[in-house]
Design a binder for these strands. Structure first.
Length: 584
RNA sequence: GACCCCGUAGCUCAGCUGGAUAGAGCAGCGGACUUCUAAUCCGCAGGUCGCAGGUUCGAAUCCUGCCGGGGUCGCCA
């Protein structure tokens, strides 16, 4: 049961009834009416701004309107008290038993608690990672990977049909560089002395393995031959090797994407030409000359006619080139074809997770998607700011050139995938993140991963103790749902139940805002509520969960504890983090 | 020159799409360990929400203009 949505419906119905009774004009816009938990619990369990929002259009004083609506709401089942406060808020207090029924719902739902049908099966495509296949994943890539993955799970949880996708940029100049660098390592593997790695090549040692593997497969077949003869095959070989490396890196942090789309395949199948034709037919492409770029003008800049997409018609600042001076496609052209492809595969909502350095690209892509789908698809970009890796309070030096950059694997080996994933989600994605290699392993309250996991472990510990020491009590969650929950009467027990009842609402709002980090903050707060109740049991033995002399009350408390474990597990599931049974 | 992020307690950050007296953790101060693991909990203290206007019954939140930090701006992806 989603308490807040349930009462939102009731408030809406009562307002409509007032309209029907002639107390209010009909057809009022109820879009701004909210029903939510008040910030201050002393105000009650629920608060609605309906009277404040509707007073003006209804031509009535907020307080009067509030009184009228309050009178109706006081007749609603489970509403025990209605007060009008401040400028015209209506505060409701609900029957305690309602929260106990919510608790029973949690037990029946299990770790799926919070799932909903909000998305109504709409198709969402979440594209994330999508790094160039030129090297292993770094910690920086991991943030986008984790954010994209958690967002996908979050959307799936609220009823969207989600595709997790990776776009392989295997058609640009960078993969040619990769091929050349690999060829160099291949020659090295066959005994040549290559000396230093020339400027403009990838220096990473990981390419030695690829060169060696190529030598093993093909022998000296590509030796002493002109580049055009080997470039294509070496490139294919190297890209495959890099994608294996990347897929392994993703697997290391528990990510498996559904679709890997190749830019090269798109280009070679004529997908880009097809898009161009479509655009031309609609007069969205023309040949023109652009102004020089503002700011730092490239030295080799010269005005020349080029193939342009009329992005300005869709809100962009300038029209955007689709072809480079050498006649090949710009990045935009195949990317347009790619997004059209996603749309044709059924995506009604497309979400791209990008690094923050791509900020300048969002307007043209938004324009492109609008043009290509004729406004039928929603397009959203999530930016991930940099991750600053810290050790002993000092930033870890990251330089590819100096060979000191830290691979994702190294960090996962050090802290584990669950810690990495959770920490990556403890900030808004568009805020920078400090990742403290020691801090994330600290066993204290200021480490959110530990604190949340500890709450789960504590709950599980109680259940284990119960099973061992009080074997006659029910253990099955469904049976626990039938325990005499009316014996849960302490204010902190009720507070915990209320907090738990907010979970479905929190999940939906996080999904609607595309903000998975909200889950992390909820879990942290929720864990604090649970730890607090736990500790009260130390001083007041009557508040302990396990009371051998009171089997009925103990059963009710086990129901509460089990529900806590389910709620935490439900949140961690969205994050792809395994809830732990005990802390070590 | 333009566009995109960010600016909230000494520090690191939340703030539920405009609600009531702006909240957590850390650091500081004071308390609770014969327990269902004190790896935790309770209390105190700490604020001109960058600045100035505007919209509104009501603004940290929306709009405008400044200030400060970061990013980007044809042939990189």
């Amino acid at each position: 049961m989603h308490v807040f949505k349930y009462f939102q419906d009731i408030v809406t119905k009562e307002i409509e009834a007032m309209g029907a009774a002639g107390e209010l004009p009909g057809g009022l816009d109820l879009g701004r009416v909210t029903v939510e938990p008040p910030r201050d619990a002393a105000h009650g369990d629920l608060s609605t701004n309906a009277a404040l929002v509707l007073a003006k259009p209804a031509g009535r004083k907020p307080r009067d309107l509030a009184e009228a609506l309050a009178a109706r709401l006081s007749q609603v089942p489970d509403v025990t008290e209605v007060t009008v406060a401040g400028p015209g808020f209506i505060n409701l207090r609900l029957d305690e038993d309602l929260w106990r029924r919510c608790l029973a719902d949690v037990l029946r739902a299990g770790p799926d608690y919070g799932a909903s049908t909000l998305g109504a099966g709409r198709k969402v495509n979440v594209e994330y990672v999508s790094t160039n296949p030129t090297g292993p994943l770094t910690v920086g890539h991991a943030r986008g990977a984790v954010v994209g993955d958690a967002l996908a799970s979050l959307l799936a949880k609220v009823g969207f049909e989600v595709t997790r996708e990776y776009y392989i940029n295997d058609a640009g100049a960078q993969v040619d560089t990769l091929a050349r660098s690999t060829h160099l390592r291949y020659r090295e593997a066959l005994g040549e002395t290559i000396g230093g790695i020339p400027e403009g090549y990838y220096p990473g040692a990981y390419l030695k393995d690829v060169g060696r593997a190529l030598a093993e497969r093909d022998g000296d077949k590509w030796l002493g031959r002109p580049e055009p003869e080997w470039l294509g095959e070496v490139r294919r070989f190297a890209i495959d090797a890099m994608m294996d490396l990347i897929r392994q890196g993703l697997a290391d942090i528990g990510i498996r994407q559904d679709v890997f789309s190749s830019e090269r395949a798109l280009v070679e199948s004529g997908g880009v030409e097809a898009v161009l034709e479509t655009l031309e037919a609609r007069d969205l492409v023309y040949t023109g000359v652009l102004e020089p770029p503002k700011g730092q003008t490239p030295e080799d800049w010269e005005a020349r006619p080029q193939t342009l997409f009329r992005a300005t018609r869709f809100g962009d600042d300038v029209d955007r080139p689709l072809k480079k001076s050498d006649g090949s496609w710009t990045y935009l052209a195949p990317d347009m074809a790619y997004h059209l492809d996603k749309f044709r595969r059924g995506a009604e909502i497309m979400i791209d997770v990008w690094g923050a350095d791509h900020g300048g690209y969002v307007k043209r892509m938004t324009a492109a998607v609008e043009a290509l789908t004729e406004g039928k698809a929603e397009f959203k970009v999530l930016f991930c700011q940099l991750v600053k890796l810290m050790r002993h309070g000092e930033p870890v030096k990251m330089s590819k050139r100096a060979g000191t950059f830290v691979t994702l694997k190294e960090v996962v080996d050090e802290v584990g995938k669950d810690v990495l994933r959770f920490i990556m989600l403890t900030r808004k994605n568009d805020a920078p993140l400090d990742f403290d290699l020691e801090g994330v392993l600290e066993k204290s309250r200021d480490n959110p991963v530990f604190y949340v996991q500890y709450a789960h472990a504590r709950a599980r510990s109680v259940l284990r103790h119960a099973a061992a020491e009080l074997p006659d009590l029910p253990r099955d969650p469904t049976a626990l749902a039938g325990a005499p929950l009316d014996l849960l009467t302490d204010s902190d027990e009720l507070a915990l139940m209320k907090r738990m009842a907010e979970w479905p609402r929190l999940v939906e709002s996080a999904a609607e805002a595309y903000e998975p980090h909200r889950i992390a903050f909820f879990l942290y707060d929720f864990a604090a509520t649970f730890h607090g109740l736990w500790t009260r049991g130390k001083d007041e033995t009557a508040l302990r969960f396990l009371l051998p002399d009171e089997p009925e009350r103990t059963a009710a408390r086990l129901a509460l504890v089990q529900a806590v474990a389910f709620t935490v597990a439900s949140g961690l599931q969205i994050f792809g983090v395994e809830p732990v049974e005990e802390m070590r």
